[in-house]
Design a protein around this nucleic acid. Structure first.
Lengths: 329, 329
DNA sequence: CCTGTTTTTGGTAGCGGTAACAATAGAATC
DNA sequence: GATTCTATTGTTACCGCTACCAAAAACAGG
C-alpha cells in the first residue's frame, strides 16, 4: 500500500480512503489512486485492516458433520447472504462432540470472527463462558434450546415431531413406532423423542419402549430399523423415522419384504429431501425451513455486527415447518 | 498479551514463546506464564500473529455449489486433515461462474490464505495471473485439466466416462444414450462427454446427437431425460447418466412407465451415492475417491506450506476410480 | 578463575493497515 | 476583506503480535 501511495504521490491514508470510503475522496484522487492500484495489481491486506480496525468480515460456523446433506441448505442460505455483504464463512465440524466444539470456538475467537453460528445447542460451560466474554453475537440454529446462548433461528424439533405423531394418530394408527438418530449429545434427537411422547400422551396411546429406537445415519440403518421393529412387535402399524434418510431405507426394506405401505405399515419422515417425493409410495414428511434458517441467521447476525442492533440480543426466531401428507401414511 | 506479560513479570516475547515455541523456554517461565494465561483467560489474537509473521493458517476452498452432496465428502476429507494441523477452512461458492470465482479468489488472497483449493478447473486468465503472482500453492480437484494452475488431485472424468461406456458396449448394448449436467463452464461435464464419445468410437458405434442430452440437477431432471430419449429414439437400449442423481430419477421413471431395467433399457450412473446400492434394481456406477481427494489435497497442500516442498509444485495426482457392475446393466 | 559457548530472556522495530486528530485550501457568510 | 465553515488530505500513533538481534545467565573446558 505504501508503494501505491508513493507512486500516486499521496499518503497511505488517502489510498485507504479510496479503497474503503470512496465518498470522502475527490474524484481526481480516486482516479489517480485506482489507476496505480490496477497498474501494480495491489491487493489490500485484510489481516492488517482487520487488526487495525479491530473488525473482521469473517463468520465462524460449526456443524456436527459437514457431510450431512441436511445442513448444506442452511449453509447455502448463510453463504449467499453473507457474500452479498462481503463476509466470509469459516466452517468447521465438531463431530457431535461438545469438547471438540469448545476447541473450535476457541480457535474461531482467536481468529477474531465477528460472529458465530452453532448448529448444536449443547455446549460445555467453558464454551458458553468464552463466548459470553468475547461479546460477539452468536446464533444457534439446530433447535430451540431452553437456555439460548444469545440468538436462535430454528424450528422446534419438539413441535415438528409432535405434529407428525399427532397426524399419524389422527389418521387412525394406534401402534406408532419411533426411530431417530442417536441422541447422545444431540438435543435435536432428544426433542424429537419428547415431541413424540407428548403426542402419544395427548392421543391417549401407551408408550412402549420396545418400539422406540435409536440408530445411525444412512439407508441401511433405516432398513434395519423397520425389520427389527416389525419382528419384535408385529402389531406396529406406523413408523415415524425422525431423522436423515431413515424412512427411505425403511421403505425399500418394506418393498423387499412385500409389506404394503401404508397397508401393513405406514411410514413418515422428518425432512423433506427430494427423494421422498419421488419414491413410490411417496413418503409423508415435514418440510423444514433449512434454507430460510441460513438466510435469517445471516441477516440477524449482520444486523448485530454492522448496525449494532443490540435490541436483537437474545432474539428467538421460531421458523415454521409444514406437514406434508403423501401416500405412505 | 501485554497484560499477561506484566502480570507474569516477563516480556511479551517470552509470552509469545511460551505459546508458540514452548521448547525454547525454561520450565519455570512456561508454568508461570501459562498460569497467568489461564487466570485471565487470555486468547491470543491470530490476526495479529498472522500479520506479524506473514503466515496464516487458513485455506480457501471454492466449490461451484455448496449444496451439492458430491463435494461434501471431499470437504470432509480436507477438513479432517487440515484440522489436525491447526488449519482452518474458508468455503465459498462460485455458482459455476468463473468471474464469480475470480472475485472469490481475490478476496481469499486479500485474506492471505496460505493455500487455495478449487473444484473447478476453468478460470479466467486474470484469476490465474493473480494466483501465480501471489505465489501460494493451489490444488485443483474436480478434474484433471490440460493446463493445471499448479497441483492437481483428482480422478479423470474423461477416463471414468470412457470406462463406463466401454463397459456398456462390452455388455452388448448398442444404442447408448448419454446424459450429463450442463457443460457450460463445467469442464467435468465436457470431459465426461468426450470420454463417452471416445468409447463409442472405440466400440465402432455411431455417435447420435439425438441421444446426447444435457440437463439440470435433480431426480426430476433424470426422470425427464429418460422419458424424452425413449420417446424420440425408441431403439435406445442403455442410458448413461453422467452426473448427480440423474440415474435414480431415471430409474423411478422407468418403474413408473413399466420399462424393465435393464431388460428394456439399462441404466448406469456416475457417482456411488448410497442410494444406488439400495434401489431395486441396484444401479451400476463408478466409485470415485471423493473423500481421498480431499485428504490428499490437504496433505499435499500442507507439505507445500509447512515443509516448503517446492518439488511438489505442478504435481498431478490421478486417483483411481472403480467401476461397479450391478443389476441395472 | 578466566574465556568461549550455549541457553534463556529482553528490547526494538516493524507487519500493513486504520482511527483520530491536525492542517490546508477553497467556499460561504457577513 | 476578515471570519467561519466545510471538504479534502496528511501526520502520528497504535492495533497485537513476531523477527531479529543484543544482553544476560548458565555451563563447559582448560
Amino acid at each position: 500500500m505504501r508503494d501505491v501511495a508513493v507512486r500516486a504521490g499521496v499518503s497511505t491514508m488517502t489510498v485507504s480512503r479510496v479503497l474503503n470510503e470512496p465518498g470522502k475522496v475527490s474524484e481526481e484522487m480516486r482516479e489517480r489512486v485506482l489507476r496505480v492500484v490496477r497498474e501494480i495489481g495491489y491487493l489490500p491486506n485484510h489481516l492488517a485492516g482487520n487488526l487495525s480496525s479491530s473488525r473482521s468480515t469473517t463468520i465462524g460456523l460449526i456443524v456436527p458433520s459437514i457431510d450431512n446433506s441436511i445442513y448444506t441448505q442452511t449453509v447455502k442460505g448463510l453463504s449467499e447472504v453473507l457474500k452479498r455483504s462481503g463476509f466470509q464463512l469459516m466452517i468447521a465440524e465438531s463431530g457431535y462432540d461438545p469438547n471438540e466444539e469448545e476447541e473450535l470456538i476457541t480457535i474461531f475467537l482467536s481468529q477474531r470472527v465477528s460472529g458465530l453460528v452453532l448448529h448444536s445447542t449443547e455446549h460445555t460451560p467453558q464454551a458458553a463462558e468464552k463466548i459470553r466474554k468475547s461479546g460477539i453475537p452468536v446464533v444457534e440454529n439446530g433447535n430451540i434450546p431452553e437456555e439460548p446462548l444469545d440468538m436462535v433461528v430454528s424450528f422446534s424439533n419438539h413441535d415438528a415431531s409432535y405434529a407428525m405423531t399427532m397426524h399419524l394418530g389422527r389418521l387412525g394408527y394406534r401402534k406408532i413406532a419411533f426411530a431417530s438418530l442417536y441422541s447422545v449429545h444431540n438435543d435435536r434427537s432428544k426433542d424429537r423423542l419428547k415431541g413424540y411422547q407428548a403426542a402419544l400422551k395427548q392421543l391417549g396411546l401407551d408408550p412402549d419402549p420396545r418400539i422406540v429406537l435409536e440408530t445411525e445415519r444412512g439407508l441401511a440403518a433405516g432398513a434395519e430399523v423397520v425389520a427389527r421393529v416389525m419382528q419384535s412387535v408385529p402389531e406396529v402399524d406406523a413408523l415415524f423415522c425422525a431423522g436423515d434418510v431413515l424412512a427411505v431405507g425403511a421403505l425399500f426394506e418394506c418393498q423387499k419384504r412385500g409389506w404394503p405401505v401404508p397397508g401393513r405399515i405406514a411410514l413418515a419422515s422428518f425432512d423433506d429431501v427430494d427423494l421422498l417425493r419421488h419414491v413410490s409410495p411417496s413418503v409423508s414428511t415435514l418440510r423444514l425451513p433449512r434454507y430460510d434458517i441460513g438466510e435469517r441467521t445471516a441477516r440477524i447476525l449482520l444486523s448485530r455486527i454492522m448496525d449494532g442492533a443490540e435490541h436483537l440480543r437474545g432474539s428467538v426466531i421460531d421458523l415454521k415447518f409444514e406437514l406434508i401428507q403423501r401416500e405412505s401414511t
